[in-house]
Design a protein around this nucleic acid. Sequence first.
DNA 1: GAGTGGTCTAGACCACGCA
DNA 2: GCGTGGTCTAGACCACTCA
Lengths: 249, 249
Amino acid sequence: MTESLTDQRRLRPRGSNLGRELAEKLRARIIGGEFPPGARLPSETAISDAYGVSRVTVRTAVKLLESQGMVNVRHGSGTYVADFGGQVRTGLQELRSISETIQEMGFTPRMERYRMEQRPATPEEAAKLAIDDGTEVISIQRAILADEIVMAYSYDVIPSSLIPASHVGELGVDSLFRVLDQLGLQPVRALAELHAVNSTEVAWGPSQPESGLYLLLDQVHQDQRGAAVAYSRTYFVEGRFQFMILRTR
Amino acid sequence: MTESLTDQRRLRPRGSNLGRELAEKLRARIIGGEFPPGARLPSETAISDAYGVSRVTVRTAVKLLESQGMVNVRHGSGTYVADFGGQVRTGLQELRSISETIQEMGFTPRMERYRMEQRPATPEEAAKLAIDDGTEVISIQRAILADEIVMAYSYDVIPSSLIPASHVGELGVDSLFRVLDQLGLQPVRALAELHAVNSTEVAWGPSQPESGLYLLLDQVHQDQRGAAVAYSRTYFVEGRFQFMILRTR
DNA sequence: GAGTGGTCTAGACCACGCA
DNA sequence: GCGTGGTCTAGACCACTCA
């Protein structure tokens, strides 16, 4: 391996780090089929040598993959690729763009904006966003697709004051994360609530899921200073998106 | 600080580590009022000196506290005690007994065993528990109540070999965690999958929830060695139990 | 016993905030 | 400009698995 990760340090995108990058590369190799489910990854020292990074860095990468349910680590034995049956799978505790997640699992993400309007915040939205009742917000309804199949319907609310007119057009078309990122409002944490929902009023348009069964992720996104930047209710169509979480004591 | 954490290495309980211990000590000082909400903790180097551990270890401790919503870390400024308003908010990412959680929310937990049998594992169960097809397992169906209201219906499977006959009677009556703990099989991690479920076949007995809507926590509990000790499918009645999770980048 | 992951250290340099 | 947290390294030793 002649290409060292550290050489590219200056070119790295924001919010990235060597561990994260290494995790991406390993994930790509896993999805690419080089390491099929059940296969053992090279040892941590071997990976460390191959990529020219320290073992500590390798370990942060492996831990990330583990928390995403991508691999299982067995002390004294090795790190093995998990069997996630080709489904989109993601670790809940890590805040990431849905589009990114879809892409990394080897599918093509797309947004479809259904409706967007500017209106006063409802009391509930105002409470979630910690703004005054009736403050102007931009409300967006969009569908999130992977390979043209709807993964989720999302209802997002953002205080209008955060979005300059020049960027409004991108909302609901591009990834919400990407838009916020460009404005320096990258969410770094989200306080999320989980619910099961059964309703025919969530979806719109053609090809609505038959069951009407969703996993609702009700979350407030916060920026680095702890300020609320967005309130999202994202309804994931049950069975199309796999949420997992590594719970530890 | 004369008492160095590293000196006690041999006395440390299993499954612990310096970072976790340090987090406990810091948490105790925070709860004890030494650092009230909004206060800044000593710098990482200062803590590292005071406790005789490396800064890397301090950072793992601080990260743990941050993931529990105990502190907010601000780059270039410091680490501040969060204002958690007296509320006990149990995050999903932390593995705890449901009974314990119910108790901490001020309710009285109770188990109601509906059915228990010993039988060969189904292929799916065997796969989850990493045992051979057809290995004998104990299957338990129980309801978990808080103040006599059903919070969840749980379907648990445990390899028979793990449970001595003397403890079988407690299964499904006492907290599963407590029973496993007594056998030295305390789960330290669980790989959980989340699903929305709508079914009338989950619940039993009288006073079944009308909606049939559940949040399913499908999880494999593992002990310290990574061995699967139990496979649980717990159906939480939607709306009666609140799951929160702090997602971070 | 060889090889794997688990833990920890000391030290370096970078990026950010704040006065 | 100084102090803070953010990242990364090289190396050490321990605990575990498996042949």
